[in-house]
Computed example of a mutant assay.
Amino acid sequence: MDDGATGENGRDHHSELHDGDHATSSTTGDPTAATTGDPTAATADDPPTGTVEQLFTAPEGGEPTVAHEQITCEPGGIVGDRYYDGSGHYAPYDTCQVTLVAWEDLVEIQETTGIDLTDGRHRRNVVVRDVAPTDLLETTFRLGEATLRGTRRRPPCAYVEELADEAGVARALGDGRGGICADVVAAGSVAVGDELRVVEADPRTVGEGIAARLRQEADEDGD
């Protein structure tokens, strides 16, 4: 959620910036090839979709974010975060239980604008690598031991720039780099380095896969 930043047991990521990193879509194989009979379920052999790079919470609205090695997600949000406790700046009218942003986008922002947001001033909770958060919209995914569902985009606002105390932050997080909101479907812990794995694809992707398979079968029948 939007709502600067001190590290608590956080890793130093400034030495980890990689040239040419950009947020890219990752696939988990054919979402229609389910082993459970559910056409939206990913198969057990699918590789991880992404990895947790950083974790942040803010104890109160307007307070600096704090970096963590592990957090606990429960229905309603992250234990100890301002929106879980109802003290976030936009509570109770415009809240996200959990927010995610791409590590690659933060790298790109630093490389193109000189603004370093890897310290958590973006105000998002979970920084993920190797997956574009927008690809998680309307999907259900495992994040560590927790299960979440992507709900909507989370564009930046003037308030996040005010708290970051640096001009250009809101613009830098624009164009889809602001990340997404997600709801907690099942409680669990999430740690830095944990895998992110899609377990239920979004209905649109499933529908496109079914339609493609039906077209292929029709073409084969016509040969």
Rank of each mutant, 00 (worst) to 15 (best):
P59E: 03
D165M: 12
L163D: 09
H122I: 00
V98D: 02
E69P: 03
A146W: 01
T72L: 12
E74C: 08
L106G: 07
A42E: 13
A167V: 10
E60D: 13
H13Y: 12
T140P: 00
E74I: 09
V66P: 08
D223N: 13
A201Q: 10
V198S: 08
A186K: 12
D19S: 10
G29K: 03
H89W: 12
E217P: 04
L55C: 05
V199H: 03
H13P: 04
V79D: 14
H89K: 14
L196F: 03
A187I: 11
P92W: 13
A212W: 06
A191F: 00
V127M: 02
A158Q: 13
A212V: 04
G178T: 01
G20T: 07
L163R: 12
V98T: 10
Q54V: 02
G178C: 09
V107P: 07
L148W: 05
L148G: 04
D130R: 05
P39S: 06
P47F: 02
E195C: 05
V126Q: 00
V52R: 03
A42G: 14
V190E: 01
Q54P: 00
Q97S: 07
E208G: 11
G4A: 13
D219T: 15
H18P: 06
G222K: 15
Y159E: 11
T118F: 05
R121Y: 04
T112W: 00
W103Q: 09
D81Q: 08
I210K: 15
P59M: 00
F56K: 06
E162H: 14
H122R: 00
G7T: 10
C73M: 12
G62E: 01
E8D: 12
G80F: 09
E145N: 11
A34R: 06
P156L: 07
V185W: 04
T140C: 01
T134H: 10
A58R: 14
P156W: 05
G176M: 09
L117V: 01
G76Q: 08
G120E: 00
A58G: 08
T43Q: 05
V185F: 05
G178D: 03
Y159D: 12
H68K: 11
E200T: 09
F141G: 07
Y159P: 02
I71M: 14
A102L: 02
E161H: 05
T95Q: 09
